[in-house]
Amino acid sequence: MGAAPAARDVTSYGTGLAAPLALFFLAFFVAPLLQLFWLSLHNDTAGLHWGIGQYLQFLTDPFSLSVLGSTLLLGAAVTAVCLLLGFPIAWLYQRVGPRLQTVIILIVLLPLLTSVVVRTFAWIVILGRQGIINATLQSLGMIDTPLRLLYTQFGVVIALAQVQMPLMVLPLITALGRIDSNLEDASCSLGAGSWRTLWRIVLPLSLPGIIAGCTLTYAAAITAFITQSLIGGGQMLFMPMYLYQQASALQNWPFAAAISIIFLLAVLAVVSVFTALGRLSRGYGGA
């Protein structure tokens, strides 16, 4: 026994230190989610009669299904815009000096840390009837009556893309930073053009970052309650608001629980698709 302490690994700590947080999560994260699942499997609000009535109600109701569908589509549109605009930022970041790099990071970072309500409010000011876009177009004489930009699908996608952009750009910057720049030089000196190099070398090698960014952006965009409700207005209903209405205004907890579980499963499905793509891409990148 006397020799044991000397041989003990001093570079790592025991798993026991994770126990407090593990217990905390068990009590306040795992238990609530299990309780949510349990309640969703009941047909009445009191939670006395077991059954899958809530799920059947959701899955056979065209309205509920259309809410789910438009939420998933919204996430896809926002993720696509973020990737299209975010990738060039990460690309530019690798080509400028350290001072400009810090400036770019801070520009990307600031919105992430600014209140979501504030960022959404900014888009109300920009897209509103008297907002910048309408004021500019009117003063240029391009339109007579203000365009309806707020409370449209377009408005929600643009506002959400701006709000979630940092989640896409940060992993992309990390991924592009890990690519050996000799590979791009080699590709160019072997005769491939810049676009071809981007398509065949840089994009495949940055796929882990692209997938990480897409996962984060997608998950954040479809759950962005504030931006969806303020920019989308009353006409457009997405899953978070649907869930909130059922739980809060109608007090229909079992149905709200079923909506939560379906929403959770949808997010998990998307995340696992992205993860599977990530695994495939690693094979592709190595090939």
């Binding site: 798993t15 994770a18 947080l21 593990a22 999560f25 306040f28 994260f29 795992v30 238990a31 609530p32 989610l33 309780q35 949510l36 309640l39 996962t215 984060l216 998950a219 479809i222 759950t223 309650f225 978070p240 869930l243 909130y244 739980a247 907890w253 709200a256 629980a257 939560s260 579980i261 929403f263 959770l264 997010v267 998990l268 995340v271």
Partner: peptide, 28 residues
């Protein structure tokens, strides 16, 4: 393995819809 599993558990609130967790916590 236990450390990897705990890591995934501790990171999962970042990906799961926080609204569902909010409702679940209220119920509990």
């Amino acid at each position: 393995l236990s450390a990897r599993l705990l890591d995934s558990l501790f990171m999962s609130p970042l990906v799961l819809p926080a609204l569902a967790f909010g409702l679940a916590a209220l119920m509990l």
